[in-house]
Nucleic acid binder design. Structure first.
Lengths: 392, 392
DNA sequence: AATCAATACTTGACGAAGTTAATTAATACT
DNA sequence: AGTATTAATTAACTTCGTCAAGTATTGATT
């Protein structure tokens, strides 16, 4: 094997290598999402000939994006010539991901396989666009020029924002928590940081990350449900994230589960969010904060526990609706609301099982709180994805 | 232009022509779904060069699948050379479509553009597999060897069955109305009729037909909701029909819309079907038949009218759920239940508008009863599609 | 009438990206 | 050592597209 060409500090003129062929992108994607594999198994998985894999992989190896496993790492015995599995050279390139909330920035540096290498938090006092841009720039500097020097190998930044985002143009059409309308965040952040910027809705970003690197890896279709002040849902169908023709998709929060239920701020009645959204739980529990409600429920207050039970069940019914309508291969439930995981879980499962129809009940349900850094990792994942699959 | 090679009675060795290239299938599909177009406009639509269209179209013209519009039919003036739009030669090939119900077969012959050329109905006394096959064979004979002779140009048969169907293998896993389990209908019907058979779930078949030839034509994503004894929903997303990982998708009937609603035979509570399914309407109205309920409601009986109102609203809520979760470009509502169209429509719209979230409310809703022949046309459409797009 | 600009289509050379078939490589088993 | 077996590579070929240049047919302009 020719030794790798890449010298670490080299220029980034290797873009052409990644865009070389459709097969190159497919190979990288498969290796990133499913770990090291031999060329033959890649060929089978991608529906290519092994010759095509050999050809497409070589330039990626030469450019330092792929490497072969060391002899020692290879798998056990078996007849015939042993495979030389390919692996992504994770440290070949780094990506910054930042999640913007109303009062904080959470940032990470990830390698090519979306493993977190560094973390940073910064409070956000103002939601003025210039102030936020300054904080983003400062955070990028802090992350890239910190104890480990990532700067030379980092060219991309992913931003995750809640609300209505146009990923293609980097435009934030509307963001409730930041009170933004039509902010060209992509362009502005690119100018401020010198990085290529991808902007995406936060739930979609997290869904992408879970689909590529997390619980949804390998699944052709996949749903991620987030529970918090709002109830959100990201969907991947036939391997592609779902956006909705009119820009709306995955709006699980405003599904009706109880026609006679409480009024929702959306104008409807008995929406999942009007039963299980944080502020509605607080109101129904009669406490001042959600933490107080959690404490009381854990202490055994039957009224407050019933509020959580009802909320969990509403979420379960909503998830069953997703399973019945879309039929994803698996569903992950997460979000900051799941800090009260123990109060929700059995009721979510009960609601789901009650209403999932036929084989939809077989859909595995993963209920797991994700730390806030995961959201930032989602932003980085979108950025990685946009690098590996320029189209889409 | 060289005169067309096809002689009508020629052998069917032109399969190779259709499968010639990806572009050929794309051109045919575009012409079938969107009507005659010039090569240049096809090129734009399909993202090809006009040279590619010219090249791929030629063999299709020579084999008689496409023709150029007559000079007289061409569009109006304009600078430059006028276009010679291509059109599908609809009578080049015919397809039989049969919809199987519990007590009747409905059959049609369609041309390549899914226009119905002949219709046939046959009662079904027995659901014994051999008896049904005999009826299918008789119906095919009646349709193909009738006043017009379609036999020479027909090689394919599509069958639509309600229940759990594996299209790829032609297996009917379970069909409630026919009381079938694991019937290899595709193979059996092929042997009996000598035609190439495609078997598909009836709702999916109708969805395909509407997506290609009906209200959903041109839409990238699309939903069809059927109202009858059950409530069904077929979905097309990113141009592909949705099947669901565990074989379940579009199960709109068992969505909860009222957690305190009536019990459903599925075991849940307040499902759409338990409020709007035919038998539940009859029970709630306290009549013996659905026709009696319709008559009474139309006569002004307020109790029965309220039952229809509630049913319509439940359907509307279900449709809103589809719009919120999946975001189709358009939604069609149909099915035999819509014979009572006038009783439902305003309530369906009201339920939809109440619960559709944000831009999802912009999704156009087409509420229209479809005659039973449309279901048979759906079966034919699946057969046409399998001919034009061998893969998928 | 002759020319020109505009648009549609056709042609042939070329190139990208895959394929198949034959070859080489590395292992286990006998 | 020899053979079977699987992995990877190589080289020749195929497919399917693009590009650039040319032809065809019209309306408008000189």
């Amino acid at each position: 094997m020719v030794p790798v060409d890449f010298r670490g500090m080299a220029t980034f003129d290797d873009d052409a290598v990644l865009a070389a062929s459709p097969a190159a992108a497919a190979i990288l994607t498969a290796l990133v999402t499913s770990g090291p594999q031999s060329r033959v198994s890649l060929a089978r998985r991608l529906g290519l000939s092994s010759a095509a894999v050999t050809k497409s992989a070589r330039p990626l190896i030469n450019a330092g994006y792929l490497s072969e496993l060391d002899a020692t790492e290879r798998t056990g015995p078996g007849a015939g010539r042993p495979a030389s599995p390919l692996r992504v050279q994770a440290d070949r390139e780094y990506f910054v991901g930042i999640k913007l909330t109303g009062d904080e920035l959470i940032g990470v540096v990830c390698d090519l396989t979306a493993q977190i290498q560094a973390v940073s938090h910064r409070p956000l006092d103002s939601s003025d666009v210039d102030d936020v841009l300054a904080e983003i720039t400062a955070m990028v500097g802090e992350l890239l020029d910190g104890p480990r020097d990532f700067r030379a190998r980092t060219r991309r930044l992913g931003l995750a924002v809640s609300g209505d985002v146009d990923r293609a143009s980097g435009l934030v059409r509307y963001s409730p928590f930041l009170r933004w309308r039509n902010v060209t965040l992509g362009k502005l952040a690119a100018a401020a940081t010198g990085l290529a910027v991808t902007v995406e809705n936060d739930v979609k970003a997290l869904t992408t990350a879970e689909h590529w690197f997390g619980e949804g890896a390998g699944a052709d279709s996949f749903a991620l449900v987030t529970v918090g002040s709002g109830i959100g849902c990201g969907l991947v169908i036939n391997g592609r994230p779902l956006s909705g023709s009119h820009g709306v998709a995955g709006e699980l929060g405003h599904l009706t589960v109880d026609a006679a239920g409480p009024a929702c701020h959306c104008g409807g009645r008995g929406c999942v969010e009007a039963i299980a959204g944080t502020s509605y739980i607080v109101a129904a529990a009669g406490t001042r904060t959600i933490d107080e409600a959690v404490t009381r429920a854990r202490a055994g207050d039957p009224t407050v526990a019933a509020v959580f039970a009802r909320a969990g069940e509403a979420i379960g019914l909503g998830i069953a609706a997703v399973a019945n309508l879309v039929g994803p291969a698996r569903i992950v439930v997460s979000g900051e609301g799941l800090a009260a995981y123990d109060l929700f879980e059995p009721h979510i499962r009960a609601g789901f099982e009650r209403q999932a129809f036929g084989a939809a009940a077989d859909c595995p349900l993963v209920i797991r709180p994700l730390p806030f850094e995961e959201w930032a990792r989602g932003a980085a994942a979108v950025s990685i994805q946009s690098r590996l699959v320029p189209l889409a």
